[in-house]
Design a protein around this nucleic acid. Structure first.
Length: 277
DNA sequence: AACAAGTTCAACCGCGTCATA
DNA sequence: CTATGACGCGGTTGAACTTGT
């Protein structure tokens, strides 16, 4: 219905965020939370629209953002989840703590889609319509969102991101090839992060994806100091929402969803048998 | 070293949905 | 019940960066 007039464009700044703006935004959210995005920039003294602030926070400044390369497990999870959920990036992101929908969407379009295309064609040839509705390229129209409209952001143990400058951070880089290297880096789990507790509360999410322990550790190895008292209340319902969304998606679950779920479970098993994973 | 082509990703845009007056 | 405001989402864009010639 009523669409908000995106922002009063008069006098509002656009484009890349400066470190100063990041600081202001982070400091304000630390102090006051973000219960009202629209009012936030005014309160914080930022010449940005609320939408822009929200996006910056969610995609970049949030303390639980995991930056850097996607691991093989994450990529596989994205692929599988995309098969299940379609282009519902936020739902996918909700199952990959530390990753944002925007980031996942980017990775999908820049890497995974390309990587998948040849195999998809092969599969189609092999299966020859055995599962008519269940291809990887299956498109879904945007589903009606039922119920809660809380953020799907995963509430994870707070950690720090150095407020990133508008310039590309060295950590954010291309994905795939560095998998082995990254695995080496993430070989030790971070002491600061209650990994199991944090994510098993997301019910199915954690049960569905039994990544190895190193999987989450990268996020968590970030220093915790400065975000310890970030009021994360707006995110607190996140996992409830995850559960809700996943259950709502399974409410309408049809046979082929089950099929793909099964495929994923198998692929999860297959993972553990892969020599490099 | 310089340029062109290709790739990546942060940010923007517009729409759908929900809450509430 | 309807209109409006606000939020969240997915699609798209374009500048920055990388790679190839």
């Amino acid at each position: 219905m009523g669409r908000a007039p995106c922002c009063e464009k008069m006098g509002l700044k656009r484009g890349p965020w400066t470190p100063e703006e990041d600081k202001i935004l982070v400091a304000h959210i630390q102090s006051f939370g973000h219960s009202n995005w629209r009012a936030l920039p005014k309160q914080a003294g930022l010449l940005r629209c609320g939408k822009s602030c929200r996006l910056r926070w969610i995609n970049y400044l949030r303390p639980d953002i995991k930056r850097g390369n996607f691991s093989k497990e994450e990529e596989d999870a994205i692929i599988t989840l995309h098969e299940q959920l379609g282009n519902r990036w936020s739902a996918i992101a909700a199952r990959l703590p530390g990753r944002t929908d925007n980031e996942i969407k980017n990775v999908w379009h820049t890497h995974l889609k390309k990587r998948l295309e040849p195999t998809t064609k092969q599969l189609e040839q092999e299966q020859h319509g055995a599962h008519a509705g269940g291809g990887a390229a299956r498109k879904r129209s945007r589903p009606k969102r039922a119920g809660a409209r809380k953020t799907t952001t995963a509430a994870v143990a707070p950690a720090t991101t150095a407020p990133a400058s508008p310039e590309r951070s060295a950590a954010s880089s291309s994905v795939t090839e560095s998998t082995e290297q990254e695995q080496g880096n993430t070989g030790t789990s971070s002491p600061g992060f209650p990994k199991e507790e944090s994510f098993t509360s997301s019910s199915e999410a954690a049960e569905e994806f039994q990544f190895d322990d190193t999987f989450w550790s990268e996020t968590l190895s970030m220093p915790l100091d400065s975000f310890d008292d970030v009021p994360m209340e707006p995110c607190s319902g996140a996992f409830g929402d995850v559960a809700a969304s996943s259950s709502s998606s399974s409410v309408g679950a049809d046979a082929d969803l089950d099929y793909w779920l099964g495929v994923f479970m198998k692929s999860g098993d297959a993972h553990q048998q892969l020599p490099q994973v």
